[in-house]
Design a protein around this nucleic acid. Structure first.
Length: 901
RNA sequence: GCGAGGGUAGCCAAGCGGCCAACGGCGGCGGACUCAAGAUCCGCUCCCGUAGGGGUUCGUGGGUUCGAUUCCCUCCCCUCGCACCA
């Protein structure tokens, strides 16, 4: 099969098979051909295409293996759906705003725009060299005014609907650089600026917020319906939103009026023995001015990060609204100002953290909830538990709680919330409003001007959009602050002097709706064509990294819901099915530049070709699992493709003239089997299994051609099936071979092969053949047969199949009696009785096999495999042609075997 | 601590009530081809067995079932996410 390509040199050999096929030429040829024909264009008038999308990349300048995996998955799936006859939308674009471009521009003394577009150019080339079939006419780059004007427009619309707010927020501030830093740019425990190394401080700045909390309930509740999403992601979003039902109520603090506290356990209120305030609670700050101890604690000792609960006593007392008791007030660092109300009633008997603090401060620990007794009558007040060593935190029955004693926790909560004047049911969320202000240049300018008179912050009117970025200025702080001319403007309301807002938007704004822009990327009067979006959305299959489980995916869901409420979008969820793809690792470790253990896709493409890289990745593991990159695996994948090429070459150059015999029918059945299985696996995105089947079929075809002169039609059917089954993953070589096999048009447009058989039938047939072969091997081995002369395979008699069927369907106690009612079974005498006993013994475990004729046919067509292996003639016979003595071992699914030596 | 997902033969890894001594790959062993090597192909790879048999296995210990790798509970370990969350 192999052809010598190399010349023999004096003292080296060229490894023949390693020469492989000319992947570079093949890939270039088909990339050009696709390009010439606009093969991946999705016209605007298609109806409800299958929308397949990979998370668009940040244009860092180089495609890495993670990208390659991500986009190979979407590309393979898109191609598969297309070959199945779907219209497909498979676009690509660039998450082109962001800090790295700004930093790169500063370092290289260029500007972010040029740098970004350079990166986009190289990455586009790399994507094309991977053979990804994108509709490049729909390409978007978020850093163009054509795109970001719609961020601004959406911001205004959100504002009109009351979903934008401007308020103070704490940010990381580096005085030296004069800028705000993202959390990840603050380094180490000392909180130093990543750039200048100076300490970072917290500063209150006016920031713009999108009120995502307005949608908290819907975002949470709709997670239940996202059945096409991985559980892990759904759970992470639930946690992130963090909804809690509880009670808000007031404690009177002497001299400070009423203080609001939130609790989920108002049933424990009789056990509240102290009250605690966050160090940055307004009362704490007030106290700190007068009380040295509090001052010292708030400024120096409080350590919210530490494990140990610390606090300081105050002179104040709070009044328990139920008992009227005066309890001491502490300022404590385990109370967080952004959780609940920043103030809490502490119940050490029933909360672990309160317990620890009470023990430390020697405060009273009082049991007010007892575990519900197993035999509880619903009235009697149980004995109070001992909570001196450990808090009892479960729900139970109230004790030591006056008139509420004897109630269950749940009931008590409802009653107390109703009875206490200042109390009301309250729902708390962990989700905060989304602060989108970034003190950066390379982002969407927030379309607001600040009036020098009294108009305040005023939206830039729609007709004045976009607010375009001015030229980049290389400076330490925010370049927009230095863009004096750009900043100077007039107030849209009063016409007076005004200054532009210099904050830009978080780039997650860009990515929260980009999937809608692909629908109509050139629309210049709307962000997206509504009618088409309603038809084309949602994204049918979204693929990307797990790192976006919360932020990007939550923000996109939020935007989609807002657009549904105010812009007529008829979908409330953007992504129907989500696949979080696994990592590409090297020796069990994540590839990373800093560790220096990366594998360059470009090198792999040069050495082995894009098809090899893609095929290796897709067959190595299920898409959601991590897997190890292996050069060994890549080489063997490449060898596989080379061999396939040789097989097709061989077939085309000399037409085989074999018979349509039993072997051909075996091969034919295997072709059907492979198609049936691989199609199902492609549908489930388990490419690894689909490809394993496809490679198995390729091997079967080779074995066939090695063993016999193949029947041309069968062999060709096999090759053309393999080529098409491989086409989604190895598109270039598939085009090449498709063409070589004599088909017109692209394989991307070819019809997916079809098979008549179902998977269950296939599985039964394969199992029969495999079991039979194994049995023969066992016998030969155990009996020590050196050199078999002849092998007989005898299918069980027809009546055994009938008996099996009766046994499966029967629910009679006495199966043998039931069997014997059939005269043709009864006639078998002892044999029937004996088989009947076997059936009776395994009654519950029986399952239907193929029928006797199907079994015969399956074995006959597989006989060549046995002949080839044992080098002995094999005859497959029906029971009636065999001697009775041979038949004793024959059962449905298990033929009798007779070996002559 | 809470939540999610896992723990399967030397390694990686499928299976998720009977077809399971358990798919597939790697590694190892033997064979075919070759002058040879590589590549390719065919077997074997828990233990015992001279006709397809038997025994012990799927983190641990229990349970449900005629029957469990598969279902339920306990505990141990791993990975990920959240977390002094009131």
């Amino acid at each position: 099969m192999t052809k010598a390509i190399g010349r023999r040199r004096p003292d080296t050999y060229i490894r023949m098979s390693d020469a492989g096929y000319d992947h570079a030429a093949v890939e270039r040829r088909w990339q050009e051909a696709w390009d010439d024909e606009d093969a991946y264009r999705t016209p605007d008038d298609v109806e409800d295409p299958t929308y397949v999308l990979g998370m668009y990349p940040y244009p860092s300048g180089k495609l890495h293996m993670g990208h390659v995996r991500n986009y190979t998955i979407t590309d393979a799936y898109a191609r598969f759906r297309r070959m199945q006859g779907d219209e497909v939308l498979h676009p690509m674009g660039w998450d082109a705003f962001g800090l790295p471009a700004e930093n790169a521009a500063k370092e290289r003394d260029t500007n972010p725009r040029d740098w970004t577009f350079d990166c986009i150019d190289t990455m586009t080339d790399q994507m094309e060299s991977m053979g990804f079939g994108y509709d490049w006419d729909r390409e978007i780059a978020t850093c163009t005014p054509e795109y970001y004007q719609w961020n601004q427009w959406l911001f205004s619309r959100f504002h009109e609907e009351g979903l934008v707010e401007r308020r103070d927020a704490e940010v990381n501030w580096c005085e030296d650089c004069g800028t705000v830093l993202a959390d990840e740019q603050v380094e180490g425990e000392d909180e130093l600026c990543w750039r200048c190394g100076m300490p970072v401080e917290q500063r209150e700045l006016e920031q713009w917020f999108l009120r995502i909390t307005e949608y908290a309930d819907e975002l949470l509740e709709d997670i239940d319906d996202l059945e096409g999403w991985p559980n892990s992601v759904r759970q992470m979003q639930r946690n992130w939103i963090g909804r809690q039902f509880g009670t808000e109520l007031e404690f009177q603090v002497a001299g400070h009026g009423s203080v609001e506290a939130f609790t989920t356990r108002v049933d424990t209120i009789h056990g509240a023995t102290f009250f605690a305030l966050a160090p940055d609670h307004p009362i704490s700050e007030e106290l700190a001015e007068a009380d040295d101890d509090v001052h010292r604690f708030v400024e120096h000792e409080a350590d919210p990060e530490g494990d140990e609960p610390n606090g300081v006593a105050t002179d104040l007392t709070a009044t328990n609204p139920v008992t009227g008791e005066e309890i001491p007030v502490y300022v404590a660092d385990f109370v967080l100002s952004d959780v609940g109300t920043g103030a809490l009633m502490a119940v050490p008997g029933h909360d672990e953290r309160d317990h620890a603090f009470a023990t430390k401060m020697d405060e009273e620990i009082k049991p007010v909830i007892a575990p519900k007794p197993d035999d509880w009558d619903g009235e009697t007040v149980p004995d109070a538990p001992d909570v001196s060593e450990e808090a009892f935190t479960d729900d139970g029955v109230l004790v030591n709680s006056g008139e509420y004693s004897g109630l269950e926790s749940e009931t008590a909560r409802e009653r107390l919330t109703a009875d206490i004047d200042s109390a009301a049911e309250s729902t708390q969320y962990q989700l905060r409003d989304w602060g989108i202000s970034r003190q950066r240049y390379w982002g969407t300018p927030i379309p607001v001007v600040h009036c020098h008179d009294d108009c305040g912050a005023v939206m830039v009117p729609e007709e004045d959009l976009p607010v375009e970025l001015p030229e980049f200025i290389n400076t330490t702080g925010n370049p927009l602050d230095e863009a004096e001319e750009w900043k100077r403007t007039t107030c849209p309301d009063c016409g007076g002097d005004a200054t532009r807002e210099t904050d830009t938007m978080d780039t997650f704004v860009d990515s929260s709706w980009y999937f809608l822009r692909y629908v109509s990327p050139d629309a210049d009067d709307v962000p997206f064509d509504l009618e088409r979006a309603n038809d084309w959305m949602p994204v049918d299959q979204y693929v990307g990294g797990i790192e976006h489980a919360v932020m990007h995916l939550l923000y996109s869901r939020f935007f989609t819901k807002v657009l549904a409420d105010y812009e007529g979008l008829e979908h409330r969820e953007p992504f129907e099915n989500l696949l979080a793809q696994g990592m590409v690792q090297l020796e069990g470790e994540k590839m990373s530049k800093s560790k220096g253990n990366t594998v360059s896709p470009q090198r792999i493409v040069e050495e082995y070709g894009a098809d090899t890289a893609r095929l290796f990745m897709m067959q190595a593991a299920q898409p959601e699992r991590d897997f190890d990159w292996s050069e060994e695996g890549v080489r063997s994948t490449y060898a596989f493709l080379s061999r396939l090429q040789e097989m097709v070459d061989g077939y085309v150059s000399d037409d085989p003239e074999g018979e349509d015999d039993a072997i051909a029918s075996y091969v034919d059945a295997e072709i059907d089997a492979t198609i049936a299985i691989a199609s199902g696996e492609y549908d489930e995105l388990t490419f690894n299994r689909a490809l394993r089947e496809t490679q198995d079929l390729t091997r079967t075809l080779r074995q066939y051609a090695d063993y016999a002169e193949p029947h041309a039609e069968t062999y060709e059917r096999g090759l053309s099936a393999v080529v098409r089954l491989l086409a989604p993953v190895a598109p270039h070589l598939a085009e090449e071979l498709w063409h070589e096999l004599g088909y017109d048009g692209f394989v991307v447009d070819a019809e997916w092969p079809t098979a008549q058989v179902d998977r269950d039938y296939v599985a039964k047939r394969r199992r029969l053949v495999q079991n039979t072969r194994e049995d023969i091997r066992d016998i030969v081995e155990v009996a020590g047969i050196e050199d078999p002369e002849a092998i007989d395979v005898v299918v069980a008699p027809d009546w055994t199949y009938d008996a099996l069927e009766i046994a499966i369907e029967s629910d009679a106690d006495n199966l043998i009696g039931e069997l014997m009612q059939e005269s043709h079974i009864r006639e078998q005498g002892d044999a029937a009785a004996s088989y009947g006993q076997d059936l009776q013994a395994e009654r519950e475990a029986l399952s239907m096999t193929l029928g006797p004729d199907d079994e015969h046919a399956a074995l006959e067509s597989a006989a060549w495999l046995i002949e080839r292996e044992f080098d002995a003639p094999v005859s497959v016979v029906h029971a009636e042609e065999a001697d009775d003595s041979v038949l004793t071992n024959a059962e449905p699914g298990r033929p009798a075997i007779e070996i002559e030596d």
